[in-house]
């Protein structure tokens, strides 16, 4: 889609299937899923936040008008709750912001909290584990929560914050502890994008994972873009779960991986 944007497409969206090989099946995730993606030109992640608020309100009003929302318990009115990653770690896990930028201290803090920290345990694994165990269940309890400004290394396709380049302009929004979308102020600097892809590949090699082929066409396309852009991918199946009140994503799919491959649990 960025290649289309580079050709001057203007705002674009698509609804399509995404397939992620070897990803686990769970009550919230099917390896093949439907995503809604859109990009806005002359825009950043704040504009995408507004889009999300309007989109969910639109779906809500439509379904409510058809009297299809019997037990919907979330308040979708604007503005949504917004909390930065650093604030969320402080508020829900009692972790000071400074620790997010000091891998050694972060690891020893995690160890003190009772998490298993071994020599091969990465910062990212512990970050995710604490996010899942201590933070996510607090997000989107009664109204949607936007979790924004991820650590720069956690957003390979997002623009760094000009006011604090330790963070990148990325957000995810949550309802009922479930992540529904992931958005960026898109990185449109082709040189920086190339450098980040190369860094990512070095990290993958260290983890024993295969290198990703660098998309040269994308790098070339980015070099033609001279506007700001915001973009997002929203999990459509999870939206269906939300509005239909289903607990398991399988109930929203005609052919779930669990059904098709007769997986247990």
């Amino acid at each position: 889609m960025k290649k289309l944007l580079a050709q001057g497409s203007g705002h674009i969206f698509q609804i399509c299937k995404s397939f992620r090989n070897a990803e686990p099946v769970s009550s919230r995730h099917n390896p093949e899923f439907t995503i809604l993606e859109w990009y806005r030109v002359d825009a950043n992640y704040n504009d995408i936040m507004d889009d999300c608020e309007k989109l969910l309100k639109f779906i809500f009003d439509y379904l409510e008008g058809k009297k299809l929302l019997a037990d919907f318990r979330f308040d979708l009115s604007s503005p949504w709750e917004k909390i930065s990653v650093a604030e969320a770690f402080q508020k829900y896990a009692g972790i000071e912001e400074l620790l997010l930028h000091d891998e050694e201290k972060f690891k020893s803090m995690a160890s003190k909290k009772g998490y298993a920290v071994e020599s091969e345990t990465s910062f990212q694994e512990l970050f995710d584990q604490i996010l899942v165990n201590e933070i996510e269940s607090n997000l989107g309890k009664t109204r949607p929560t936007i979790l924004y400004d991820y650590l720069a290394p956690q957003a390979a396709l997002a623009k760094k914050k000009s006011s604090d380049p330790r963070y990148a302009e990325r957000f995810e929004f949550y309802i009922n502890g479930v992540e529904l979308g992931n958005a960026f102020s898109e990185l449109t600097d082709s040189k920086e994008q190339l450098a980040r892809f190369q860094d990512q590949n070095r990290a993958r090699l260290l983890q024993g994972r295969p290198e990703m082929k660098i998309d040269d066409d994308l790098i070339k396309a980015l070099s033609k873009i001279n506007q700001e852009m915001g973009g997002i991918a929203v999990g459509v199946d999870r939206l269906v779960m939300l509005f239909s009140g289903k607990e398991d994503i399988e109930e929203t799919l005609a052919f779930s991986a669990r059904d098709v491959f007769s997986l247990d649990q």
């Binding site: 009550s27 990465s122 990212q124 995710d128 993958r204």
Partner: peptide, 13 residues
């Protein structure tokens, strides 16, 4: 109950 999660980049929980 058990559930696999892969929330971030490469982490499996």
């Amino acid at each position: 109950k058990t559930d696999f999660l892969s929330p971030g980049k490469g982490s499996a929980l």
